[in-house]
Design a protein around this nucleic acid. Sequence first.
DNA 1: TACCTTTCTGAAAAGCTTTTCAGGAGTCTT
DNA 2: AAGACTCCTGAAAAGCTTTTCAGAAAGGTA
Lengths: 342, 342
Amino acid sequence: MRVTIRDVAREAGVSISTVSRVLNDTCFVEEAKRRRVKDAAERLSYSAHPAARSLLKQETGGVGVIVPSVSGEYFSEFLTGIDHFTQESGFYMLISSSHRSTAEFETALNTMYRRVDGLIIMAPDQGGFDATHRVLRSMPVVYVNRPFESSLSDSIGFNNFEGFYNITSHLVDMGHRRIAMITGPATAIDAQERLRGYRQALRDGGIEPESSLEVVGNFTRQSGYQAVSTILGSRKRPTAIAAANDLSAMGAISALHEAGVRIPDQMAITGFDDDPSARYSTPPLSTVRVRPREMGRLAIQYLVGRIRKVADAEGRKIELPFEIVLRASSLGSRREGASRTS
Amino acid sequence: MRVTIRDVAREAGVSISTVSRVLNDTCFVEEAKRRRVKDAAERLSYSAHPAARSLLKQETGGVGVIVPSVSGEYFSEFLTGIDHFTQESGFYMLISSSHRSTAEFETALNTMYRRVDGLIIMAPDQGGFDATHRVLRSMPVVYVNRPFESSLSDSIGFNNFEGFYNITSHLVDMGHRRIAMITGPATAIDAQERLRGYRQALRDGGIEPESSLEVVGNFTRQSGYQAVSTILGSRKRPTAIAAANDLSAMGAISALHEAGVRIPDQMAITGFDDDPSARYSTPPLSTVRVRPREMGRLAIQYLVGRIRKVADAEGRKIELPFEIVLRASSLGSRREGASRTS
DNA sequence: TACCTTTCTGAAAAGCTTTTCAGGAGTCTT
DNA sequence: AAGACTCCTGAAAAGCTTTTCAGAAAGGTA
């Protein structure tokens, strides 16, 4: 049933070493034998057992990806970026997601141990995992969206603070004085940064942040939807909402429609991420474009570079540019594409 | 650097067999030694090399998932369903996606060979791959959305024809006589079935399908968006659109808004899938709920059952129920939740 | 006390490959 | 023609674990 290199060797009438050499094209082998081996391998549809090979070569051909979630456009896009390059370069992809606790996160890390040659970690909500974990030291790691000081690993991300500062400033520039925010989960570092950007933008616009206008969300549509009732019920109704991400902005938009609030006339709204759907919402959503797909591509490129040892030993820390994308949801008239880059 | 079972054995002053026994809890070992081994393993932070183990045991602890794409809510949801159970049951997940050709698809299959203990395959667009491929015969397989006659594998899906028949019938019931369809890619089996359902529903409603009303799309927002200009430009403008999936429906909705067409008064529209976003679109989208997350969960449960040999040898073929979810996009008044089940 | 069980432990094999090492055959040089 | 190469090939080791097998020790019975 199971066909091994021995079977091929017997079939071709050569030793297993020769089979290995032919199949891996590692030495010159007499043409006649070469043919016989190829034929035999083909006939038996042989391929080397990955476990045996990786046991010996101490490499697997896989990369591990750790993300908070596999659902939501932001993550999908990120994964898509990784996936493309992964296939091109012949690596396979091992994904682990949704770790509610640090313990679960470290379990995931352990699962990756020796099963992959490198790791991409996006874990904005894992505050305190052990940065010296043995798995982390055993292979190259690229951190995404999680500034991390280590000369052994690369780190790529964008400036959440600045991005959110800019989109909030846009609302201020449009003349809004009462601007609510639908925040992300307090545990996530990127959510914290965005909140900080929001507050700073208000202050710089001469507006004192009010905690009653900071409605807690968790990056989901539903939380955005629910936040709206709080916002509409507030003592002095704001005229604009800055949502911590596009998903929650969409939820909010839906709720605003249901409440009969016109966008952007009665309520302007902005998001963050520029999910593919942002352009198709009603009205199209002003947001901050951060190109998760690009991030994914970059992350895997760096990682593969490190795995193949072509990268600098020095850890790189890349900050990707973002782009403010203004659409109808925050503009008086319906126009599209005005943009400002970081 | 690399710590093996030998190191633990030396450290604890026992043989490697004993270490293995203690760590796998496979035999009774004298308590004192047991302690020593545990301590040593802990101290050296040892864990068995997965390759060595799987080479010997002929099992890996992984499951492979092959999907057309990793982006889009439908697939995200599906993966999420798998992911949850995967973690619970201690398996890891290897994902391969976006195979443009049969060759690429079979490459993916080969990559999975011996790296996982079972396979979940969702490939509605892979018409003619080799169903007797050696990888497919080497481990349990669960096919999703792809009726497949094999007593060795389970198969899970829903009735695309009926689902689309029903949602189209709803439009007919609402009094529409000219109903356009935005189709999926002609190569995908599920898209074909939905188109068939559309036509049948029209005929059963006494309406002769017109090919000019069947606008080709490809399941993306963009294709839905573009389809609208064709539809609006047609000689006799239809009063309703049945989109092959939610994504293309969303694109269409966006285009309709831009064109100033009121939904549902001037144009009703329906989707398919009930993506999480469908409920949040403007107006909320009538659609067919197929619960991809449930499908994922079921698929992985079946698969793990087969891997652990508790499942019937007999191949099961499950057809999951769908549910017609009517929302404002196809109803005169804004009401929600009326539903009809398959 | 001698023999038979039972219980625990170590040695060794098996799982499959890649790669090093060494040897044999053939070719070239002087 | 002999020695020195080169070229190709096979044997064997290494990579790390689990599990079988067998042996030693201990305990029980006749």
